[in-house]
C-alpha cells in the first residue's frame, strides 16, 4: 500500500503526555516513529475508540508532493500541537521534518561531510559519526520539536518507500550500527535494488569502519556510495 492510495492518514498523540507538542502522522508508508503503530493499527484503533489518540486526517490539498506536505495535515497538526507546530514534511529530515518525541526506535542525523545521513537505533550505545550517541541525540532533538537535520523514525520505516525520499531516500544512508544493518539486511538489499543500487547494503558503513565522518568517508569513496554524487544535502 502506498501513500498515494489513500486520502486519509491517521494521527497519534499518545506521546503528548511527555512531549506536549508532538504529533505523529501515520501514513501507509510512514509508520509511527516508536515502531508500534502503522496505518492499519491507527485505523483500527480509531474504529474501536473514535475519541482516542488516533484520529483520521484528511490529507487535503497537496502542498509539496516531493517533500510530502498536505494542507489537511498541517491544519490538523497546528491544532493538535496547540499552535506549536505549523507544518511539517513527511519525506524530509533536512527541511521541516516531522516532530520527534522521546520514544523513537531510531534517530537519523545528517552527516554533512559525507553528503549523507546516518541512523542509530536505541540498542546501540556507542559513539556515532554525527558526534552524538543515541541518548544525546534524543536529548537535543526529542521532546516534540521539529529539528531540521534530524528525525526520529521506526526501524521498519528505513526501508519503506517514502523514507526521506525528498532528501534522496535510502540512497543517502551512509552509516548504521552493524546490528541494525544486519537486522534489516534483506530489506535494504531489496529496497536498494528497487532504487537502482543493488549492492547498497555493502556500501553502508558501520562502527567497524569508523565512528567519525573522517573515518568513513574513504570507505564510501572506495565503494562509490551514491550519496557522494547527489545534490548537496544542505544548501
Amino acid at each position: 500500500m502506498r501513500d498515494e492510495d489513500v486520502e486519509t492518514y491517521y494521527s497519534c498523540t499518545l506521546c503528548q503526555s511527555f512531549a506536549p507538542s508532538h504529533v505523529c502522522s501515520v501514513s501507509p508508508e510512514r509508520t509511527g516513529l516508536c515502531g508500534a503503530y502503522n496505518w492499519m493499527d491507527c485505523k483500527a484503533s480509531f474504529e474501536i475508540n473514535p475519541t482516542g489518540p488516533n484520529q483520521p486526517i484528511e490529507k487535503g490539498e497537496c502542498i509539496d508532493p516531493v517533500m510530502g506536505q498536505w494542507k489537511g495535515v498541517n491544519d490538523f497538526v497546528y491544532k493538535a500541537s496547540r499552535g506549536a507546530v505549523t507544518h511539517y514534511n513527511f519525506y524530509s529530515m533536512v527541511t521541516d521534518p516531522m516532530t520527534t518525541c522521546g520514544c523513537c526506535e531510531c534517530i537519523a542525523a545528517m552527516l554533512p561531510s559525507c553528503n549523507g545521513v546516518m541512523t542509530v537505533g536505541r540498542d546501540y550505545a556507542g559513539e556515532t559519526p554525527c558526534g552524538m550517541k543515541f541518548t544525546t541525540l534524543a536529548g537535543v532533538m526529542g521532546g516534540g520539536a521539529s529539528s531540521p537535520g534530524f528525525v526520529g523514525h521506526s526501524k521498519f520505516n528505513i526501508t519503506q518507500g517514502k523514507f526521506i525520499l525528498g532528501d534522496g531516500g535510502l540512497l543517502r544512508m551512509v552509516w548504521m550500527p552493524k546490528m541494525l544493518k544486519e537486522e534489516l539486511k534483506e530489506r535494504i538489499e531489496k529496497r536498494g535494488a528497487a532504487m537502482g543500487v543493488p549492492n547498497l547494503y555493502d556500501m553502508i558503513a558501520d562502527e567497524t569502519v569508523g565512528i567519525t565522518e573522517e573515518e568513513i568517508l574513504p570507505f564510501l569513496q572506495e565503494k562509490g556510495h551514491p550519496a557522494l554524487s547527489m545534490d548537496p544535502l544542505i544548501g
Partner: peptide, 12 residues
C-alpha cells in the same frame, strides 16, 4: 564535543 554539528545542536 566531537563535531560542529553536535556543538550546533547544543547551541540551539
Amino acid at each position: 564535543v566531537p563535531t560542529c554539528l553536535a556543538f550546533a545542536m547544543n547551541l540551539a
